[in-house]
Design a protein around this nucleic acid. Structure first.
Ligand SMILES: [Mn+2]
Ligand SMILES: [Mn+2]
Ligand SMILES: [Zn+2]
Ligand SMILES: [Zn+2]
Lengths: 142, 142
DNA sequence: GTATTAATGCAAATAACTTGCATTTTATAA
DNA sequence: TTATAAAATGCAAGTTATTTGCATTAATAC
C-alpha cells in the first residue's frame, strides 16, 4: 500500500525514538506492503520464515510501534487484533458481522459527522486521526 | 436504558425461538438496565450473586441471544467483548484509544455516509443496523 | 571501545473464551 | 398431568490470543 523504502522506515523508527532493529523494520516493511489490516498470526507466520522472529518479539514490536503512533490497531469483533500503518488519514471499513470479510473504503470523509459527535460529547473534546467500522453483512453472508 | 418488563423480555426470547430461562431473562434484564455496553466480566460478576449463574452459561446465553439478533457485540479494541441490547437503531460511540473510556452519542445519523460507502463497495451491498466507533483521545488522556 | 539500556528468544503464565459431559429444565405431545 | 425430546446448566478442563520473567544479545550514546 504505502510501500516505504528501507531508509524511510528507518527514519520513521528513529523519529519515534525507538531503536532500529531488523525485526522492527521487518514488521513495518510487511505492513507497508499489504493492503488490508493484518492479524498477528499472519505477521508471525510471514516473518518467522525469513527473519526467524519469535511471536513474543512480534507482539512487543507491534506494541512499541503502536505506542509510538506508527501503527493503528483494529479489532472487527474477531477476537484478535489487526494492525495497519498509521497514515495520518482516517481509515474507514465495512465489516461483515458474520464472517471475517472486511473492505477498506477510500475517498470518503466523515469529518462533519465527527464534528457533530464531538459537539454532543461530554467526555471527548477532540479526535486524532480516526477509524470507523460499519458492520453489516457481506454479499456472501447476506 | 430500554428497561423492558419481564413480560416483554419473555416475549422477545420466545419470538427469537429460544427457551425462556431465568438466566436468559437475567442477562437480558441486566442489559436493559445499563446505559453503556457491558463486559462479560461485569455481567458474570453482577449475575453470579443473585442468580448463581456460571460464566459458561453467561457466555452461552450471550452467544445465543446475539445469534438471535437480540444483542449487539462491540469490541473497542479492549481485548474483550462488550454487549448491549440490539435496538434496531444504529449505535454510535466515541472511544478513547488510550484508556477504556467510551461514550455513546445519540441523535446523529450517518445513513448518507453508509450509502456512499456501499456505493464504493465491492463486497457489500447492504448493511443491517450498523454500529460506528470513532477513536480518539478522551479529555482525560488528551 | 565501553557502558547503558533496549531488544530478543524461549518457556511459562495469564486472560478471554470454549467445550465435554453428566445432570437438570423447558417445551411439546400424548 | 405425565412422558419425551431437545435445550440449558454447572463444573472442570481445554483453547486461543496475548503477556511476562529471565538470561542473553544487540543498539545507541559517550
Ligand atoms: Mn480477523
Ligand atoms: Mn472494555
Ligand atoms: Zn460475510
Ligand atoms: Zn482516555
Amino acid at each position: 500500500m504505502a510501500s516505504y523504502t528501507q531508509e524511510e522506515l528507518t527514519g520513521m523508527v528513529q523519529e519515534a525514538g525507538l531503536r532500529v532493529t531488523g525485526h522492527r523494520l521487518a514488521v513495518l516493511g510487511y505492513l507497508s506492503k499489504v493492503k488490508n489490516p493484518v492479524t498477528v498470526y499472519e505477521l508471525v507466520d510471514a516473518l518467522r520464515k525469513k527473519d526467524n522472529i519469535d511471536q513474543a518479539t512480534v507482539y512487543r514490536n507491534l506494541a512499541s510501534l503502536h505506542e509510538a503512533g506508527l501503527l493503528r490497531r483494529l479489532d472487527f469483533n474477531h477476537g484478535h487484533a489487526h494492525y495497519e500503518l498509521e497514515t495520518g488519514r482516517a481509515s474507514h471499513q465495512l465489516v461483515c458481522s458474520n464472517c471475517e470479510t472486511i473492505e477498506k473504503i477510500e475517498g470518503i470523509s466523515i469529518d462533519d459527522t465527527v464534528k457533530k459527535m464531538l459537539k454532543k460529547s461530554k467526555k471527548f473534546k477532540q479526535t486524532t486521526t480516526h477509524s470507523m467500522e460499519i458492520y453489516g453483512l457481506c454479499k456472501n453472508c447476506a
